[in-house]
Design a protein around this nucleic acid. Structure first.
Lengths: 212, 212
DNA sequence: CAGGATCTAGTCAAGTTTGACCAATGACTG
DNA sequence: CAGTCATTGGTCAAACTTGACTAGATCCTG
């Protein structure tokens, strides 16, 4: 699973209908270009692909300013919405995800009911713990850990990452259970996109060095 | 930078000369199929590509067992070796890497002199710290952190990951400075590949559930 | 008000990754 | 000893990603 589809479906969903450049701007607004592979090519490709697969409906739109390139607006439909929630739930609950997927999931976590969000995160922790015990057991040589040499450091790194990931997830659960943020069905949702006619505040701003 | 080239160059380098299937087995032996995208297609593609680019020399080999498919052996040359060390140094020193790249770097860290390994890891920590201060400063809204809503959790996650990554790296540095493992120029190197005629001990063994 | 920079909106070729598939050989099993 | 299954060694199409490029409109600046 890649993060880009979740991000794009989420972006289109918040607008109801959007063209590629709007999606691009939203992702940049969320900082997604720093922690995911959200580049123009990927975004436009994913939009086309998902339209082809019936998750989005493409509308050709007459260029607003005469002479500009032909634009395509994408509208999310029921199938797309369903896919969005499937991806979202998987992003949050599965430990077999890279950080970019989890990040995207966090970005849309408030689109779920609070209870479900917590349940999914707990599932994630359970998965991490199970993976940890499986992996440590399987890769611990019988004749002492030194048989692995420095290769053992790789496993050490992954186990460490899993432990810290679980730790962080527990913290998040606590904050959510403590009442933080506004979830689905709890009133005015958090506004996470730029208004359709806003100028993009992040173009060519002073950036921290780009990282991932 | 993707981990696969580093992994493959490293594998070929330890054999001097190897064909695709041997590389595949080494990577599996190292557990790389669990934490990187080392799948047959990627491996064979990367081998061909690097041969095309002059990092490896391809030798067509008569099938050992008559009738088998034609095999290609790849031999690493000076350019490939240089590339290997370039990638290795970057994998270890740059914080802008996914965990699979770092893992691959750790896997070959003993191919460097001990001093250099430590220096590269320290560079990594410095980068992480600088990134952290840049990012927290840039994404901290003036009107209080609550302006970000749950989106702030994404940054929180990344900062947390960076902190834990630095912590782990410090631990590794300590172990290395404490004399662990055998580095380049320190005598008999750690044997990290399967002997050319060994049976593959990892085919169809009981695996922990596959993860990444 | 000319000229450059930026914004809007997107395309494209080349490279990479995925997952399924293929065929010969050897090993096991009833 | 036929059938099945695993191993060896790899190919391929389709999907995805990357990075560079395009082109008109608009803003800014001297």
């Amino acid at each position: 699973m890649s993060a880009i589809r979740l991000l794009i479906l989420g972006a289109v969903r918040q607008h109801g209908r959007a063209h590629g450049y709007q999606v691009r701007n939203d992702l940049e607004f969320w900082g997604a270009h720093e922690w995911s592979n959200a580049k123009p090519g990927s975004i436009y490709h994913a939009l086309k692909q998902m339209a082809k697969q019936g998750l989005l409906v493409a509308h050709e739109v007459a260029p607003s300013t005469a002479g500009g390139p032909p634009r395509v607006e994408y509208e999310i439909n029921d199938k797309g919405t369903e896919e969005f929630f499937t991806l979202l739930r998987e992003a949050l609950s599965s430990h077999e995800q890279k950080t970019d997927v989890l990040s995207a999931g966090i970005g849309f976590i408030v689109d779920l009911p609070r209870d479900e969000a917590v349940a999914l995160l707990k599932e994630r922790i359970a998965g991490l713990e199970q993976w940890r015990s499986g992996v440590t057991e399987y890769y611990t040589p019988e004749d002492g850990p030194e048989q692995l040499g420095h290769i053992g450091e790789i496993m050490n790194l992954w186990v460490h990452s899993a432990d810290r990931g679980a730790e962080w997830t527990r913290g998040l659960i606590e904050r959510i259970e403590g009442g933080a943020y506004t979830f689905a069905g709890e009133g005015e949702p958090f506004v996470g996109v730029l208004a359709d006619d806003d100028p993009n505040p992040y173009t060519t701003g002073p950036h921290p060095e780009d990282n991932r």
